[in-house]
Design a protein around this nucleic acid. Structure first.
Lengths: 229, 229
DNA sequence: CCCTATCGGATTGTTGGACAACCCTCCAAT
DNA sequence: ATTGGAGGGTTGTCCAACAATCCGATAGGG
């Protein structure tokens, strides 16, 4: 057997599958913020034992999609303005550091960013918002990947799901979205700036992109009055 | 009742207590790297049910002190050189960003750094290595605190326990350590550089401090041949 | 009328036991 | 030398029960 052959077997426990299903429901806003998820309810809904449901809930708590209070159960997180701000602050720090690391990053990482850019452009051509959102975060993840730190990659993966959660919330019943081509163009500009060595410009573009998104989010959040709960 | 009064009740579940005890044992190197921790063994040792032990183990896995393989249980992590490098890389990124944020940070955060510096100096006066290590990481945590991001604070808290774990491993049976006063002085210098607005110097001092520590760690790790497992 | 105390419902936290699924090692057979 | 069980051990999941805790409502005291 060639040493390079590597096969990933998708082994996932029942708890993980339940968690995935719940995450899906949360992302699709079938489960609105604040909805309590009792262990027994999840258990019966998923046809698993309460202990398994319990574990699934804990997984989602670790991912920041649920909040848990001792002896009071878990509920879908209600994103406060502060939470959103923190997520974007973290993104800014990580992505800024990533861009600054571009010059020292290995070729592999550079190619990864290039690939992510291409995939985003492809998604923009079609009109599938779900994959566009995935590719969008994929691009940013590849930038964080320039830091070559599995740890930070993991942290950013968590952030991504939360960002997508927020984005999904925003666009519930709000079918007017940004122009996918514009999204693609913005990101392509960042990539090309880095490739041309214009690090500062890439920084500026990224910061303004994040700021714009954050402002959009907070504006809508405020309009809905989800500031505190 | 004054609105500012805030009382934290130390409510901790059984699983958390078991996890804390295990963490203690791991930190004290009573449980050497690679030691398998079976659920039943932990359960009987802690006199709790297996499910509780299981939960405790998962907590430690989340903190990076144990590695878990499906159907094969958990064991104490064997720090590879790559792991250590990643931890320090992450620290460098976070702390660098923190120092850069000093000028924009609120007074509160500044005071927090000042306090951490003082506490470190106090600890250096005595010869208690455990509190010195705590205060040391406390100082760095306060720097990350300049970023005003609870998320990154949480990430750094995790890193701290791992760093202390590594440090504990290093010094097992190796009683010659750094001079506490030198440690204190190094950190004080960083604080004062920031306070005086010499951000670049603070950056340089921090980087060199981290590099030195990392080199020390990797050297000893290599000597012990724990590179891979 | 307001404050306090107590009670009951609901949910989680923890337990103990049971069984299936799975992985590893060892050994035999091809 | 590779393949294919057999066996032992551990985890993954389930179930049923009880204790601990929290919430809200309701009743009693100032």
């Amino acid at each position: 057997m060639p040493a390079t052959l590597k096969i990933e077997v998708a082994r996932s426990s029942a708890a993980e599958q339940v968690a995935a299903a719940l995450r899906q429901s949360i992302m699709l806003a079938e489960l609105q913020p604040g909805t309590p998820l009792t262990e027994t309810a999840v258990a019966t809904a998923a046809e698993v034992a309460r202990s398994t449901a319990r574990q699934a809930l804990q997984l989602l708590v670790n991912q920041g999609l649920l909040v848990h209070q001792r002896n009071r159960g878990a509920r879908v997180v209600t994103p406060s303005e502060r939470d959103v701000r923190d997520v974007y602050r973290t993104r800014e720090i990580l992505e800024t550091a990533g861009i600054l690391a571009w010059p020292q990053a290995p070729l592999e990482a550079h190619q990864s960013v290039a690939l992510a850019t291409e995939r985003l452009q492809d998604a923009a051509a079609e009109q599938d918002w779900e994959t566009l959102s995935d590719r969008d975060m994929g691009f940013h993840a590849s930038i964080v990947g320039l830091l070559a730190s599995p740890r930070l990659d993991g942290l950013f993966a968590n952030l991504s799901t939360e960002v997508q959660f927020y984005a999904a919330l925003l666009y519930v019943g709000n079918r007017e979205r940004e122009d996918p081509l514009a999204v693609s163009a913005d990101h392509t500009a960042i990539y090309e700036a880095m490739r041309e060595g214009e690090i500062n410009q890439a920084l500026q573009l990224t910061r303004s992109l994040l700021r714009t998104n954050l402002d959009l989010l907070t504006a809508i959040l405020r309009r809905r009055g989800w500031n505190e709960c």
